[in-house]
Computed example of a mutant assay.
Amino acid sequence: MRVLSLANAALIAVSLCGPLAAQDHSSHGSDPQPEMDHCAMGHLPPEQCPPKDEHDGHGAMDHSSMEHGSMDHSDHSEDRQDEHTDHGSMDHSQHGGTPDKSVPGAAPEDAVPARAFEGPRHAADAIWGADTMAPSRENLARENGGMRTGSVLLERLEARIATDGGEDGYVWDAQAFYGGDINRFVLKTEGEGEFGGELEDAEIQALYSRAIGPFFDLQAGIRFDPEPDARGHLVIGVQGLAPYMFHVDGALFLSDRGDLTARLEGEYDQRITQRLIVQPRLEIELAAQDIPERGIGAGISKIEPGVRLRYEIERELAPYIGIEYEAALGKTAKIARASGDDPDGMKILIGLRAWF
C-alpha cells in the first residue's frame, strides 16, 4: 500500500509539472497579468483603438509590471496642462492694474471719462451753495500762489580800496519788489562815487516785472539818472536764474537823447559751508554809439570781473571781502587816457549784503 501511495504521488507531480514547464517564467515573483490594453496606455493612435466605455479595463490593470520609462506621457501631460492652467504664463495686467495704453485703439493718457462732467463743477456747491463757497475759493487761490509779498535786497554796499594808488570809493546796488508770483513792481538803484568827492554815477529804475517762465522775468519800465547828468531811459530786460544756478540780469536802455546802451550782470553762489559762500561776479557794459559827454565809446565800454567771499551771520546779514578788476575797453579806454585817467585798476572790496 505504501508503494502504491508513492507511485500515485509521483504521477500527480508529473502531471502538474508538465503545464508549468510550458509557461513563460520571465515574470517570476509577480502576480499573473491579464492582457495589456495598449490603447488605454496611449501606445496606439486613437484611430486604431476600438470604442470602449470610459472606465473599461482600469480596474483590472496592474501597473506594477508596466515599463513607465518607455511609455509616452505627452498626451497625458497636455491634458493635465489643460486642466491645470499654467498661471506663470497668464496675463494679469487687466486684474486691478493700469491698462496698457500702448495697445492700438486704447484711450489716450489724457482721456477724461464722460461721467466726470456730469456733476457740478465744484462738488461743495451741491451741499453749501455756490454763493457760500465762492469767497472760500477766492481765499484758497490767494493763499496758494495769489499772495502779494515784498522784499528788499541790498546786493552790494561796499568800500573799494585802490591797489594802484588811485582814489578809494564806494558802490551801492540794491533792489526791491512787491507783488505776486506772476506780476510784480520792481525798484532798482545803483551808483558809485569817491570818498570825500562827488557822486560819479547814480540811477533809479522803476519796472513792471512779469514771469515768462519758472525761472525768468521780463521787465520793462523807466530809468532816471540824476548823475553825472540828468537823463531818462526806457528799459527792457530779463532777470532770473539760468541753468547751473547762475543769477542773470540783463537790460537795454534807450535814453531820451537817442543813446542805446546795454548792461549784463552774472553771478554764481558757491557754498563752501552752510555759512561761507564764494561769489564770482561779472558785469559788462556796451554802447551802440559814442556818448562823449559821458566818456563812453561804441562797443564794449567796460568790464568788471571779481570775486567775493561772504559769511552769513544770519541768512539776512552777510559781510564780505573780495577783489575786483575794473577796466574800460576800446574807444572808452582811449577817451579815458585822453582825459588823463587810468582806464583800468584793481580794487580790494569790503562790503555787506543784506535782505529783509
Rank of each mutant, 00 (worst) to 15 (best):
D79K: 12
Q274D: 15
G42Y: 02
H122Y: 03
L252E: 07
G193I: 09
D31H: 12
D75T: 07
M1Y: 05
G69A: 05
H68A: 04
R184I: 00
Y170C: 01
D225K: 06
Q48A: 10
G306A: 01
H247S: 13
P113K: 04
E200G: 12
L276M: 11
Q239R: 09
L329F: 13
D37H: 03
A176P: 06
A206F: 07
V3A: 10
G18C: 10
N139P: 07
G166R: 00
L44C: 03
F117N: 14
P113L: 09
P120A: 02
H28A: 14
F246T: 09
E83Q: 13
Y244S: 12
D24W: 09
G97L: 13
Q219V: 10
G129A: 02
G213H: 07
S151F: 13
M147P: 00
L349P: 00
R231A: 14
G191H: 03
S15Q: 11
I335R: 06
I284N: 02
H84L: 13
Q175K: 09
G306I: 03
Q94G: 14
A116Q: 11
P226W: 01
G196N: 07
D217K: 08
D201E: 11
S77H: 13
M66H: 00
P108T: 12
G105M: 11
K334D: 15
R275L: 10
A107Y: 09
L20T: 07
A328I: 05
A124W: 08
G196I: 10
S151P: 05
G295Y: 07
G351T: 00
L252R: 04
G119D: 13
D341F: 11
L218V: 15
G69P: 00
E267L: 14
V307W: 08
G96R: 05
R294E: 15
L153G: 08
S65Q: 13
A111F: 11
G88Q: 10
A106F: 06
D86S: 01
E167D: 15
R315C: 05
